[in-house]
Write a protein that binds this DNA or RNA. Structure first.
Length: 545
DNA sequence: CTGCAGGGTCG
DNA sequence: CGACCC
DNA sequence: GCAG
């Protein structure tokens, strides 16, 4: 999702790690600093039951709905709508340190760029076989309007992604609205193999909604839904946000106008609720629900508080219930953790976007310091920067080195690099950091600031041992939807994918709880992981779901 | 009605 | 361990 | 909010 979306395929090395980013997504327009004196009015705007969130509850209930509570844990990802703005069509936005990247790649990836296409095709082909079968299955299971005979040309996976640069306008046809025709599709095929996964449900199998633009017939609808989505994201309603994102992505893939609820509901990831909203938007050019929630003072306060690093629904509601309405209230009256203090003090800093050039500068600063400690190590900026974004929510760097073990990395980074960067005045605060003596630690989260600036930026370091580069690349390349999708796929295949590697023979309980670590299958090569999972290779910029 | 990725850090 | 974050 |  995103705005002007899909633009260039910036010309960077496909293998260059591009990563997922953990930016915060906050609506700049939100009147977060002007919400003082928010009325103490009683909440009545909770139209739907599910909507009666704790927030507004001026009164007693501090308790977030189960939904929301469960929601913790995945919000604010860089893949949020507003975050995906890719750099404008200037192909020249190459990563400044391409060399560095190349080196990294060379050291940690099996295949060289040369072999890329070939490999990809092979994978793709292999995939197609599986796919055609999966597709049938999918059609039987999903209520997609495909005709039986159509699947010969497995649409979805425009497989070996034609590295077409001029962007694409081809859209996955399955999603195309077509005259409803209850395909009597194969109960046979459906029964054939219960284990066949419905690939249509994995967004990682399908190139992102790249062709989307304001030209899309559903542009207006999408715009409003993105507003809703952004709102829910701010409210940290993870699952609703996720659902919206999926639905929006589907809509972006449509090339015809979706005007009725019935029409909309036929699409994947669009259920009755979203369908109704879509119809309302088309009919009235607005969404009442959005209008309401948007200007509720208490919601505004809640969103203000939720924007603080380290503050979630529980904490924010406690503050609200305690009567606090402004950041000043919190600073003067509430008991805050160190993170909260930093988060409040630099609320604006962390809330603002980081220009691409500045991201580069931060990266250079870190890299320079690291090289002085040990020239073999490298720090590479990942995140949306690698995806070619013109600005980022935070700066995310992977630090690795030839033969580096997690232990040596911890020593180098945690005991030397970080302290030095602090001394240099570059690092300003730590928010969450591993301890060099913790054998499992692998990250450092904090804030940095260029000598030439006074705006603090969220900076994350990830320590990645050589043997885990492949998995790390996938993880930090994102986007998050893609990651979650591919991880889910791995799970469905009895495996487990995390930032360290792909594991097989993972035993799980009835409810999916991991009962066993599983056996490491692959961690070093990104491509192999894709291959093993049967996911067609996708360039980083195509992993925007 | 339940799961929605999986894992690290903080208090 | 719950909350929060990536 | 969707899907199973």
């Amino acid at each position: 999702m995103g705005f002007p979306k899909r633009v260039v395929l910036v010309k960077f090395d496909p293998y260059v790690p591009q990563c997922i980013q953990f930016g915060r997504v906050l609506d700049p327009s939100a009147q977060r600093f002007t919400v003082k004196g928010a009325p103490q009015r009683q909440p009545d705007q909770a139209a739907e039951s599910s909507q009666s969130l704790p927030p507004s509850q001026t009164s007693l209930q501090i308790k977030p709905s189960r939904r929301q509570l469960a929601a913790q844990g995945s919000q604010r990802t860089d893949s949020h709508p507003t975050e995906e703005s890719l750099a404008p069509t200037q192909p020249e936005i190459e990563a400044p340190d391409n060399e560095a990247v190349d080196r990294v790649e060379d050291s940690f990836t099996m295949s060289s760029p040369k072999q890329t296409e070939r490999v990809d095709e092979q994978v793709a082909d292999r995939f197609n076989d599986d796919l055609s079968q999966a597709i049938k299955e999918a059609k039987a299971l999903a209520h997609l309007p495909l005709d039986e005979d159509e699947d010969a040309e497995s649409p979805t996976a425009s497989t070996a992604d034609d590295g077409d640069e001029s962007g694409r306008d081809d859209e996955p046809l399955e999603l195309a609205p077509q005259p409803r025709k209850r395909s009597v599709v194969s109960k046979a095929s459906a029964l054939r193999d219960k284990k066949t996964l419905n690939m249509n449900t994995f967004q990682c199998m399908d190139p992102g909604a790249g062709g989307y633009s304001s030209q899309n017939p559903n542009a207006r609808t999408i715009q409003i839904l993105e507003d809703m989505c952004r709102y829910y994201d701010q409210m940290q309603d993870t699952w609703r946000t996720l659902a919206y994102r999926k639905g929006i992505t589907t809509l972006k893939k449509q090339h015809t106008k979706i005007a009725t609820a019935k029409q909309a509901a036929a699409l994947p990831f669009i259920g009755s609720r979203l369908a109704d909203k879509i119809e309302e938007i088309v009919l009235t050019d607005r969404l009442r629900k959005l209008d309401n929630t948007k200007d509720d003072p208490l919601d505004a306060v809640l969103r203000l508080f939720l924007g603080i690093y380290g503050a979630g629904l529980v904490q924010a509601n406690k503050w609200i219930q305690a009567g606090y309405r402004t950041l000043e209230d919190l600073q003067s009256k509430a008991k805050l953790t160190e993170s909260h203090k930093v988060g409040i003090e630099h609320y604006n800093d962390f809330d603002s976007r980081i220009p691409r050039a500045e991201v580069e500068a931060h990266g250079a600063f870190v890299n320079s310091a690291l090289r002085k400690i040990d020239a073999r190590f490298e720090a590479t900026v990942m995140g949306s920067y690698r995806r070619g974004a013109k600005d980022s929510g935070d700066i995310d760097m992977i630090i690795t080195g030839p033969g580096a073990t997690s232990s040596t990395l911890r020593t180098i980074v945690l005991d030397q690099l970080i302290p030095q960067l602090y001394k240099a005045g570059f690092l300003k605060a730590s928010l969450a950091t591993s301890r060099s003596n913790d054998s499992t630690g692998s990250k450092w989260h904090g804030a940095s600031c260029l000598p030439t600036s006074k705006v603090w930026r969220r900076m994350d370091f990830l320590l990645v041992p050589e043997g885990e580069m492949g998995a790390a690349l996938i993880y930090f390349t994102g986007n998050d939807i893609f990651n979650r999708s591919i991880r889910l796929l791995a799970r469905k295949k009895g495996m487990r994918l995390n930032q360290r590697g792909l594991y097989k023979d993972v035993k799980r309980g009835r409810r999916g709880e991991k009962l066993n670590e599983g056996v490491l299958v692959e961690g070093r090569s990104e491509k192999k992981i894709f291959e093993i999972l049967g996911v067609p290779w996708r360039e980083p910029h195509e992993r925007i779901c």
